[in-house]
Amino acid sequence: MTVAPTRKRFMLPIVIFVLLCGGVWFWAQNVETVLGDPTWILGWILTASVILPSFFNLRKRLIAFNFGSASVWLTLHVASGIAAIILFVLHTDGIWPTGIYEQLMATLFAAITLTGLCGLWTQLVLPRRLTETGHEYVYEKIPGTVADLRDAARQAVKTYTEATGSELLSHHYEKSLDWYFARPRFFWNNVFGGNAAWAWANAHMIAIRRFADPLQSATIDSIENLVSTKVVVDQHYACQSVLKRWLLAHVPLSTAFLVVVAWHIVIVHVYAS
């Protein structure tokens, strides 16, 4: 248990679930051949494959009880969700249904699937990127860290200004680095793994070095260190933001979806038993 489970642990359950869906499809074909209507049972199977992932949230709340490890639950959650896509297409015999309730459900389902897959991508891709920055920052502490960096940068600029009497650095700081140290920047570029922050920082540091007093190189070095640190902090802020906030979309959508599913089941039973 000391080596962390790999991303490949998702493979086998997904394959198994997809094969099961294949079996379901085959069964549905057989039923149609004998003039039966498989939509009914497909609906119940789809309901099961949608309710099962929602138990994951329940399991997290009941952590005091020994219901199995969360990583197994997550694997089942993902596999069941992917199976649900296939079952959805089988159940609705297409992608987009007629009828307003059904279209509402399809929209919510699509949104949940999309956010889920995006969330899965973030969980598989972003942690490695964070580790590879070489530093670790706690998300909730980042405001304090940024505030500290900002204070230190201002202090450094003050030191330089007092030492040289020149307005160069403070002027430059006002125009550029002040914005930079105000809060985490280059959010989306960092999410998608771009290097805009580094490029911007480099450009400004080159400019400062070019025109700064060589005698104050220690101060300039300290500013450069602060800027470099902030680049990493920004990366952490962006990636961890996505890692923490994507659930703000996924979970509420799924709650709304389950409500609509319950209503759909009632309607379908009333009008078409």
């Binding site: 509402l104 709304a256 609509v260």
Partner: peptide, 16 residues
């Protein structure tokens, strides 16, 4: 997240 979830549920109920 808890607030959003509750809001989403009630919104769905309201729409229905």
């Amino acid at each position: 997240r808890q607030r959003l979830t509750t809001a989403a549920a009630f919104l769905a109920i309201g729409i229905l």
